[in-house]
């Protein structure tokens, strides 16, 4: 495959877009449907990243890739899902503010553990040695292939989120988010519904973390940055938390705009890419959240359109 036309940094930019889109879709299920305000997205993603990296580098597996990758990615997913279960249980009786602080606290714990458990994680120095689960061409081709694989995983996450809206599970999540007491009176266990949702979405966040580890080929403590959470939340709030396409539109208008359009196609001065632009990016994302919450809290795509969906599903009623 001749990829000379493709800039390697552009592959990374596109990877970030795809990755944040996946996280945004999962936050949509948490916040948009179930109204669980998870401010610790990077924690679940980071648990997956580090569980994958540690499992891959510290265990002497009797088989090589791609099986090693598959097993380690499964471990990352399971560990992140377990973290989602525990955190979900701990925050189950908290209000929105408590949930925000609780999930943020969890993300902080993950960062502290990743920094201090040097024997396992490499601490602040990090660990190198991760790689692609295949070897058939040049590095750029491998990276591009990994971008396509990650895009396929995110497409599956999109399909799952899209389907949730059309199933009794999605209806239950909306009901629990909208009126927990009423849902309970109908015999619905709001806690169990939330815990299941947290397990599935956290597990998927962990899988995306594992895929990130493969792309960057190392564990770096700097990657566990609040910017991951901020990007996913800013994109979703901009696009619309209650709509599946909210995360897609939001990511295109935020991460894609900064990490692809501005970085590669605008004539910005040298040096800005590494210094001024990342700072401006965070500031703009933060401002976007504040402005949207003030002027259009439902996001660009607006409220959930449940009647329209129900007419499509049950138009013959």
């Amino acid at each position: 495959m001749n990829l000379d036309w493709l800039d390697a940094f552009l592959i990374f930019g596109a990877f970030k877009v795809v990755e944040i889109m996946g996280l945004g879709l999962l936050v949509h299920l948490q916040l948009g449907l179930t109204r669980v305000a998870n401010f610790g997205v990077v924690g679940f993603w980071g648990v997956g990243l580090y569980a994958f990296g540690v499992a891959h580098l510290k265990i002497d597996w009797p088989f090589g890739d791609p099986y090693q990758f598959l097993v380690c990615a499964a471990i990352a997913t399971i560990v992140a899902a377990a973290a989602g279960l525990v955190v979900g249980w701990l925050i189950s009786d908290l209000d929105d503010d408590g949930t925000l602080v609780g999930t943020l606290g969890f993300a902080t714990i993950v960062v502290i553990l990743a920094t201090t458990q040097q024997g396992l994680t490499g601490g602040a120095l990090g660990l190198g040695g991760l790689g692609f689960p295949y070897d058939f061409s040049r590095v750029k081709t491998h990276e591009f292939t990994w971008l396509l694989i990650t895009a396929a995983v995110v497409a599956l996450i999109f399909a799952y989120a899209w389907r949730v809206h059309r199933t009794p599970h999605g209806r239950l999540l909306i009901a629990v988010g909208a009126n927990e007491a009423l849902a309970r009176s109908l015999g619905k266990s709001a806690t169990a519904a939330r815990l299941r949702m947290m397990m599935v979405t956290s597990g998927a966040m962990g899988l995306l973390g594992a895929m990130h580890g493969v792309m960057v080929r190392s564990l770096e403590i700097n990657s566990l940055d609040v910017s991951v959470t901020l990007a996913a939340l800013a994109a979703l709030i901009l696009g619309g938390t209650a709509r599946v396409f909210g995360a897609v539109v939001g990511v295109l208008l935020t991460v894609a705009l900064f990490d692809i359009v501005i970085q590669f196609y605008l004539p910005i001065p040298d040096g800005w890419n590494t210094q001024a632009l990342p700072v401006a990016r965070e500031a703009v994302f933060g401002a976007a959240i504040v402005l949207m919450l003030i002027f259009r809290p439902q996001g660009l795509l607006g409220q959930m359109r449940r009647p329209a969906l129900m007419r499509r599903l049950h138009g013959d009623w």
């Binding site: 909306i174 109908l186 266990s189 209650a242 449940r306 129900m310």
Partner: peptide, 22 residues
């Protein structure tokens, strides 16, 4: 339930737990 339609509400009431898993 905010957002849910009348039919949603009725279906929610009758749906058994096994159909509501992820």
């Amino acid at each position: 339930f905010e957002h849910l339609t009348i039919l949603d509400s009725a279906l929610l009431a009758v749906t058994e737990a096994r159909y509501e898993r992820p």
